[in-house]
Amino acid sequence: MDREELLSHYEWSAGVCFRHPAAGEVATAVIKILYPKDGGREVVRACQDCVIDMEAQRRDAALEGGFSYRPGRVGQDLRRG
């Protein structure tokens, strides 16, 4: 699967990548929503390069662990698909 096809599994909008906050606002996708114990909601966003990197890590982990890999699920548990 090429880069553009992989990125097409996500919705992109301006935001701050959790790995590169100093870069400021860039095209990002929501990869996780956290609900801290003290209340509220924290949206974790990642830039395109980071999503590509995390997809590769997730794919490799799925292959090593015997799980199925489906793109577009960075931030989800591999056991859930």
Rank of each mutant, 00 (worst) to 15 (best):
K37V: 15
E11N: 12
A62E: 01
I33C: 09
Q76E: 15
V51Y: 11
R58T: 04
L6P: 08
E4P: 01
Y10K: 09
Q57W: 07
G75S: 02
A29V: 02
I52C: 06
D77L: 02
G40Q: 11
A46R: 10
A29M: 04
A22Y: 08
A27D: 15
V44I: 15
L78T: 06
L6Q: 10
G72T: 10
M1D: 12
E11R: 13
V44L: 12
F67I: 01
S13N: 14
Q76Y: 13
D77A: 05
R19Y: 12
L6T: 11
Q76H: 14
K32Y: 08
R59V: 03
F18L: 06
D2T: 15
V51A: 05
E42C: 02
V30W: 03
H20P: 08
V74L: 07
L78F: 02
V43S: 02
I33M: 09
T28E: 09
P36T: 13
R19L: 12
R3T: 15
Q48R: 14
R41K: 15
D49K: 07
D60P: 00
Y35W: 14
D38C: 09
R80A: 07
Y69K: 03
A29R: 04
E42D: 13
A61P: 01
V30Q: 01
G81E: 00
E4K: 04
Q57G: 08
I31F: 05
V16I: 14
A27E: 15
Q76W: 13
R79N: 07
Y10M: 10
A14E: 15
D38Y: 12
R41I: 09
D49S: 12
D49N: 08
A56E: 10
Q57I: 08
K32H: 12
D53G: 02
E5T: 15
P21V: 06
P36H: 15
K37Y: 15
L7G: 14
C50Q: 09
R70I: 05
C50A: 02
P21T: 07
D2N: 15
E64G: 02
G24R: 02
S8Y: 00
E25T: 05
R41S: 12
C50F: 07
V30A: 06
V26L: 03
A46N: 01
I52G: 07
R3P: 11
A61D: 00
S13T: 11
F67M: 00
K32I: 03
A23P: 01
Y69F: 05
L63V: 03
R45P: 03
R73G: 13
A27S: 08
R79P: 00
S13Y: 13
H9P: 09
D49Y: 01
G75D: 01
P71V: 02
R59Q: 10
D38L: 09
E42M: 09
A14D: 12
V44A: 09
A46M: 11
